[in-house]
């Protein structure tokens, strides 16, 4: 399997917004963020603040209203297979089997690599469901299939929008471990939105905290912990409390 060099990203004074029902709604407010190649950045923020929107801009699906996003110095003008997105909704193609969905990136690239498709399906624990149609999967299984569909592409940046949101706590722990292992083995840059502060602290090298909409960066912490972290680590518990306070919890909680 070819492993590409990770990609560094630079977001420079990004503004964005949408017009909903005739009135302009600002969503992103002056976001500047530099992400080094190979970093694992977790994005935290209240629901509706603009996290998914930011990921869409980085993916190149929409241009920002103001500001520039560069990948390794070159401005991003559109989507590309070096930046693979796992969306918040699984959005599996109902007319493709699980296997066909996971192989989507290969089909687009005109590449045949059934082994890596099988490996990705096995990795997310869907072995035996290769021939199932998406409507025959549970919500969590569909999400894992979407994760496999993203992983087979060997991206230089992996963009994850609440990748494990629909999983039960046990499957979630397994998938967290797998994700962390993949990131270390393949060395891609990871950009992950999550609502779970503990998950962010377990996986990320850096946690960025956003304000409510329009999103501004209100916290940017480097997580200086060893790669094999334990969720009972007192340093981790301490950081968790800090972040929750930044997100608006009262300190005496």
């Amino acid at each position: 399997m070819v492993t590409h060099r990770p990609l560094g990203l630079a977001l420079d004074h990004i503004d964005h917004g949408y017009t909903i029902g005739g009135t302009f709604t600002p969503v992103l407010d002056d976001i500047s963020l530099t992400i080094a190649p190979g970093e694992f950045v977790a994005l935290l923020g209240p629901s509706g603040c603009g996290k998914s929107t930011l990921l869409r801009l980085v993916a190149g699906l929409e241009p920002p209203r103001a500001g520039t996003i560069r990948a390794e110095g070159a401005p991003i003008t559109g989507p590309g297979p070096d930046r693979i997105v796992m969306f918040q909704d699984p959005t599996l193609y109902p007319w493709r089997t699980v296997r066909g969905n996971v192989a989507l990136g290969h089909d687009i690239a005109g590449r045949k690599d059934p082994e890596s498709v099988d490996a990705a399906i096995e990795l997310v624990g869907l072995k035996g469901f290769e021939r199932a149609w998406p409507h025959q999967l549970s919500g969590g299984m569909a999400q894992r299939a979407a994760l496999a569909r993203a992983l087979v592409n060997d991206p230089r940046v992996l963009i994850l929008d609440e990748p494990l949101g629909k999983l039960d706590s046990l499957t979630r722990l397994t998938m967290q471990t797998e994700l962390h292992r993949l990131w270390r083995d393949r060395g891609f840059t990871a950009l992950m939105v999550t609502h779970d502060v503990e998950e962010a602290l377990l996986l990320a090298t850096r946690v960025v905290v956003f304000s409510p909409r329009p999103a501004r960066i209100i916290g940017d912490l480097t997580i200086d912990l060893p790669p094999h972290r334990h969720r009972d680590d007192p340093r981790l518990l301490h950081l968790r409390k800090d972040i929750l306070v930044q997100l608006g919890h009262s300190a005496d909680w």
Binding site: A59, F87, P94, D107
Partner: peptide
């Protein structure tokens, strides 16, 4: 067709031909 279906393919590098023949048509 759910625009998210196009987004998925586009982030993987799909061009118009793929979007029409392999996404829009089957959907």
């Amino acid at each position: 067709v759910d625009p998210a279906f196009y987004d998925v393919a586009r982030t993987m590098g799909a061009r118009t031909r793929f979007l029409v023949l392999r996404v829009a048509l089957p959907a």
